[in-house]
Computed example of a mutant assay.
Amino acid sequence: MSTTYYAPRGGHPGQEQLLTDRAIFTDAYAVIPKGTMRDIVTSFLPFWDDTRLWVIARPMTGFAETFSQYIMEVQPDGGSDRPETDPEAEGVLFVVEGTATLNVGGETHEMTPGGYAYLPPSSGWTLRNRGDETLRFHWIRKAYEAVEGLDTPDVLVLNEQDIAPNVMPGTEGKWATTRFVDPADLRHDMHVTIVTFEPGAVIPFLETHVMEHGLYVLEGKAAYRLNNDWVEVEAGDYMWLRAFCPQACYAGGPGKFRYLLYKDVNRHMSLRPRLSR
């Protein structure tokens, strides 16, 4: 299977352009359209060379509290020998453009588009762009919730192209999920997957559940139901959902509708306020 993944380029709109867009932030969800990802809203990180990023999700009290998500843009020869400064943070990387040279656990991996890496806490990974093209990838971070009696997950370095999607029952292959982690592996407290809808496919009920979501549209377009609203989304848009936000989808075509999905899983609900570090 060959595919392309949308990645932002930045830039700045002209003065003649209308300011009206589809950006919205509510108490149940946010939609961050691709047109908002301009140069003026980029950020930088300590110990990263020739790199900028768009922060598209961060823990917020009363909204979505479990994760952050960045779109990283690394120029040739850029990267970091100390990318993660929080020893309790786990991470997932997903490459959309260029090639990442990832070093972790004494091994070197060349990650191309579709490349996925799970990086457990304190894994001491480093990342560089050794190629001639700009590298763009998603970086999802979460404070790992250790459980007594369960080991920390292993490093995983995979590629979507090598994984057969799991078809949802009763959909004739129109709705499928590419899973990088075995759902039965309870060492993991988050899953990052790719969801694919063929034209005309739907989520035929309002999903309402405890899991927080980040959904970055990699390809195509659709009408997405978020709480009380139907919104149109396309490649490059990001949807950010708090727990229990009702959601559904209609993929109208003409091509496939695909998104990168984050959700928190496999842990008891905390009965005490989260303590600030």
Results as ranks from 00 to 15, higher is better:
142 K>D: 07
198 E>Q: 13
32 I>G: 02
149 G>D: 09
14 G>E: 06
161 Q>S: 14
185 D>L: 08
242 R>P: 02
75 Q>F: 06
186 L>F: 14
208 T>R: 11
119 L>H: 00
150 L>W: 11
211 M>P: 00
155 V>L: 04
46 P>Q: 06
13 P>I: 07
6 Y>G: 06
64 A>R: 14
232 E>P: 00
179 R>V: 06
261 L>H: 05
246 P>M: 06
61 T>Q: 14
16 E>C: 03
73 E>T: 12
198 E>Y: 00
254 P>Y: 05
191 H>N: 06
72 M>G: 02
167 V>T: 09
112 T>M: 07
7 A>D: 08
139 W>I: 03
91 G>E: 13
82 R>K: 03
218 L>M: 09
202 V>Y: 01
195 V>T: 15
218 L>D: 01
12 H>A: 10
137 F>S: 07
39 D>H: 06
260 L>C: 05
95 V>L: 08
7 A>I: 08
95 V>W: 00
84 E>T: 12
248 A>Y: 01
108 T>I: 11
179 R>T: 05
61 T>D: 08
121 P>M: 05
191 H>K: 04
185 D>N: 11
83 P>F: 03
60 M>L: 14
71 I>P: 07
106 G>A: 12
142 K>C: 04
242 R>D: 03
211 M>L: 07
188 H>Y: 14
148 E>A: 15
248 A>T: 04
169 P>A: 13
273 P>M: 07
124 G>I: 11
177 T>Y: 01
248 A>E: 01
212 E>V: 04
268 H>S: 14
164 A>I: 10
259 Y>W: 10
20 T>L: 13
251 A>S: 12
182 D>G: 09
108 T>E: 15
103 N>V: 10
10 G>W: 07
94 F>N: 11
212 E>L: 03
253 G>Q: 07
134 T>Q: 10
225 R>Q: 09
172 E>H: 03
173 G>E: 08
14 G>Q: 03
132 D>Q: 14
90 E>D: 12
89 A>L: 12
171 T>G: 08
245 C>W: 01
258 R>A: 10
86 D>H: 11
47 F>H: 15
20 T>P: 00
21 D>T: 04
181 V>F: 05
114 G>S: 03
239 M>C: 13
66 T>G: 07
109 H>P: 11
197 F>N: 13
227 N>R: 02
274 R>C: 03
239 M>K: 02
22 R>W: 01
87 P>T: 12
105 G>H: 13
77 D>N: 13
82 R>G: 05
76 P>N: 08
225 R>E: 01
95 V>S: 10
216 Y>T: 06
151 D>V: 09
206 L>R: 09
273 P>D: 13
32 I>P: 02
11 G>W: 00
147 V>E: 06
38 R>C: 11
106 G>I: 05
43 S>Q: 11
182 D>W: 08
51 T>V: 10
